[in-house]
Amino acid sequence: MNFQFESLAELLAMKGHGPFVWSAYSISIIAFAYLIWTPVKSYRDMVNRELKKRSREENAPD
């Protein structure tokens, strides 16, 4: 098993196929990040709503 390219520039260029290969990988990585981030964001929103609800209760006049 060897590194298949002479240099980093060649790895990026991939003999002309670089734009295709790298765009496929970047789109996929963005999509994977989206799948992890969305539920984490929903959870945070739930906790934030809880926080807001509490501050409203605390500030409410007796």
Binding site: N2, F3, Q4, L11, H17, F20, V21, Y25
Partner: peptide
């Protein structure tokens, strides 16, 4: 990903474009 992108040999016919198969 690193193995597929940089260490797997290139394909005789398709060259580097075949590396998309790993995704």
């Amino acid at each position: 990903m690193v193995w597929g992108l940089a260490f797997a040999p290139l394909d005789a016919k398709q060259g580097n474009s075949y590396r998309i198969i790993y995704l």
